[in-house]
Design a protein around this nucleic acid. Sequence first.
DNA 1: GCAGGGGATGTAACCGGTTACATTAAGGTA
DNA 2: TACCTTAATGTAACCGGTTACATCCCCTGC
Lengths: 340, 340
Amino acid sequence: MSKATIRDVARKAEVSVATVSRVLNNHPSVSPFTRQRVMDAIRELNYSPHPIAQRLSLGRTETLAVVVPLFTLPSFVERLRGVQKVLSHSGYDLVLFNVDSPHQRDEYFATLATRARADGILVLSIPPSDEDAERFLAAEVPVVLVDAYHPQLSSVYIDDVEGGYLATRHLISLGHRRIVYLSEPLNNPLEFGPMKKRLQGYRKALAEEGIPFDPTCVVEAEPGREAAYHAARALLARRPPPTAVFAACDTHAIGVLDAARELGVRVPEALSVVGYDDIPDAAYLNLSTVHQPLFETGRLGAELLLTLLQGNGGKSAPIHRRLPVELIHRATTAFAPTDV
Amino acid sequence: MSKATIRDVARKAEVSVATVSRVLNNHPSVSPFTRQRVMDAIRELNYSPHPIAQRLSLGRTETLAVVVPLFTLPSFVERLRGVQKVLSHSGYDLVLFNVDSPHQRDEYFATLATRARADGILVLSIPPSDEDAERFLAAEVPVVLVDAYHPQLSSVYIDDVEGGYLATRHLISLGHRRIVYLSEPLNNPLEFGPMKKRLQGYRKALAEEGIPFDPTCVVEAEPGREAAYHAARALLARRPPPTAVFAACDTHAIGVLDAARELGVRVPEALSVVGYDDIPDAAYLNLSTVHQPLFETGRLGAELLLTLLQGNGGKSAPIHRRLPVELIHRATTAFAPTDV
DNA sequence: GCAGGGGATGTAACCGGTTACATTAAGGTA
DNA sequence: TACCTTAATGTAACCGGTTACATCCCCTGC
């Protein structure tokens, strides 16, 4: 049925394939009469051009690769929505590459560093190595990092040091001194960006107020509410217990709330909790948190990529956009208990 | 750099392109000596075959299309994970098509009904029309529906009538009589499957117990917690108020909990709430709900599609797999208040 | 009358692989 | 020695588009 080729159309319209191609691509130098004949033939044969053949011929893939850590980060959905919104009407196919191990990341980065695989690459939350970056540059394939940073590659990201700083200062200003920083593993091979930066912000805020840094107040837990719950139980059993927890992601914060409720520790009276990300659940649970524009970073990242694709081949200097974060004060933070 | 072609390799190894191609495809009739020479040339030139050219030549796209309602359904993520898990090592590219309007659905379905676009199609939660199905069959492109049903297309789905029945019977067995069914719009152009089926199950359970069906007990709200919250406020203001709400998705159920808390209506003492889907939040909130295997449907759907692709060209009869649902009794349902 | 210009169209090479078929050389058999 | 088989490799057509360049025709201007 739809196996008609451009030559079939040419035969039917009694013109050459070149002319048919010109009609398809709205080339000006086709007479209205001929154009009409070709259009008729196209309709009669129910013809539509073969995308793969077009791609080969044009030397483009008409494809954009989106590399995401699908399994590890819940925030990816919001970002992906932002990306999708922009790309859906761009004419590019959106190919999803899921990364759930360092090995897979390396594999994808290596194979994508070829113009033949994708015309452009959008990487969500996975920082590439210097070697990866070099390869991308050598291949001259436009890359945009979202929620990740590399000096040589364009990116849209947030200031995680600032976010950590805001959250911690908020707690300090409420009188807290024993503040735990709870994060996902800091040396996770897939994660060496945000969590460490947020810790930096935490330390900066402490230092500013002259509060000594206590290494036992930095606690790591595997991703997920469950792991945070267990970590929090251990924390709340300490004597004296911390009066506040700054969780480096909302999911962890929710796990902390979980543990507090179960142990009868009242939030925010006895324990303040701040999260990070402002995922939809955070609003529902009235969680104080650091808002980062998830959808927005996705959207801007995609737009930036399209801009790079317009420009002639990624030769220009990388463009970096840092988006602001904001502390959202909801119901899980309050003045520190006075028994200090 | 990576612009070496198969002819460059052939020249370097002093063989013909056919031989190089044979080496690439592990064709048996290549002498070990020649094979080694070719391999060396490939390595030296850092050659890798051009995927688009391969696809054109082979007449396959090496691509699978996944059509999802990204913006409307939160459950899609879990399903997509299941899909991704299976496809990531299949060698196929996964191209995402997001549908957020009937128009877009029609457009995608029309363009995908061509072998040239994708070797196979996985559709999540969007029932195709008879016309669409005909086109897919005519194009002989394998299609698997997940969480949707069409007699002529293979599918993996759950029994929504049963789910609605289970939820309602659960409430009835606890003594409830004024049970509201709260769902997303039943005539949403993108949604004419599950919500209506769950309603059928609801009515079936009522009928079995001889409880008259009250049309005012069927309430529709737009997707999202917010809309459900407002609908629930109106419901709880009725005199007498319903003693139970069966929400056709967990997000709605959470909106109901929201409203109840705000109005001081105790759950489950004064109001029982049952959700549907068992999204991760449901466990956290201790929501009684109907569990449907989200990840599992995605996984099985993808596996089924791969099976169809193995088989010679989708000529066979459609395969339907119905997965069981299960009522999860948590903390938001209890015996009806005795003031009835 | 003829050179020159420009619009409309056709011819054929090209993108980079795969593969049917042809060709060559080597080994085995009568 | 002549003949057949089989393994290894090469030649060239093909997948279905795009487009540089050639060609043809018609009109204008000197």
